[in-house]
Design a protein around this nucleic acid. Structure first.
Lengths: 208, 208
DNA sequence: GTCTATAAACTGATAGAC
DNA sequence: GTCTATCAGTTTATAGAC
């Protein structure tokens, strides 16, 4: 790992624990094992580090957008979901698993929870990419299930989207509130609960 | 309104918008219309203001604990819920409505969302009083509904508690992310959605 | 005498100039 | 790296209102 990556990781670690403002460049430099002036060889300012972390995460979302739209189109083209709606159980939790198999990403979520109150850019991102867009995706998803007769005809896709998505966000909030340093072990429990939730919700609305 | 109350309100307003650390005593004093040293006639320190806000909120919760336990016992004693399980629709949203009819309390929620990452005491409070205890309360509640045969025998009260509670918390997170200054108008929408959610969930699990 | 407001000064941290 | 200015929270002394 080169120095810039070390700065990235150390900064993310400290920021996600104590917030951006509470961490000084001196601390970051110390943890990395360099002098603080050396940071400027890699980043032009403290905020540039934050924005680099943020952009890394933003790129991830753009990649996810592709995956999501592809899967959604796929499910419209063939009838795999009709044959086996239980596959749905896994879609959400697998998307989440993909997002969080990197410990780094979970830390960035926490950082965004903390920092959105102080940074317009991060706040807008959180609103749009982490709340609005996922809700639209899941609304489309439930609309398709409804159209195909997998879930009940009186289902409300918009409500179901929020029913579906609010649960894992709540779990994340629980984790962020509980842990300073998020242990990998808590992820298993997270996935278990997310799957249980998906199973429950589909069972509630699917045509028997 | 006396000066101390003004300091309380102005501080809460500014803290809930920009966080505790970003607000200076000078700003608070200016907004109140006094000099910063005058604040010390009412509060021994800046942190004392934060803790006063926090204690006001803590007291509210202790009062709510009484109400909650009383209502829960009530519902065990008589069979009003069996006769009219739809009353359940309103229990949650009314509890929330009671909490948020004071604009002040919604601001404190936001402040706690922001500040819990920086303050051990607030973080513990959030975890215990705003996550753990409500979940236990709703778990007991669903256990009673199950026992009385109002909801299906294969229901999982612990899961249902989280299904129930995660939704309004998600709504709150949405509001806190969206608004700097939370408008009263958004409360109506909040209550509408919370009721729709309660209706949906009960409809999913109740014995037909 | 008590309560409240204010001016002035102190301390520590931080940022920028040199 | 040092010097300086600035701003934060705090403390003290004092003046005035009731």
């Amino acid at each position: 790992m080169n120095t810039k990556e070390k700065i990235f990781d150390v900064s993310l670690d400290l920021f996600s624990k104590r917030g951006y403002d509470s961490v000084s460049l001196r601390e970051i430099a110390e943890e990395v094992g360099i002098k603080k002036s050396s940071i400027y060889s890699h980043y032009s300012s403290k905020e540039a580090i934050l924005m680099d972390i943020f952009e890394y995460f933003t790129d991830l979302f753009e990649y996810d957008d592709l995956i999501n739209s592809k899967e959604l189109v796929l499910s419209e083209d063939n009838d795999v979901l009709i044959e086996n709606p239980e596959l749905f159980y896994h879609m959400g939790s697998e998307a989440i698993r993909g997002m969080f198999k990197e410990e780094r990403n979970l830390k960035i979520w926490k950082l965004i929870f903390i920092q959105m109150h102080y940074n317009e850019k991060i706040r807008n991102f959180f609103q749009k990419e982490m709340l609005l867009k996922p809700l639209i995706f899941w609304e489309n998803f439930f609309a398709i299930l409804k159209e195909k007769g997998i879930i009940r005809a009186d289902s409300n896709p918009q409500l179901l989207a929020k029913e579906y998505y609010s649960f894992p966000i709540f779990l994340l909030l629980e984790i962020c509130a509980k842990y300073d340093d998020i242990p990998e072990s808590c992820l298993d429990d997270f996935f278990k609960q997310a799957e249980e939730h998906a199973r429950f919700l589909l069972d509630c609305v699917k045509v028997k």
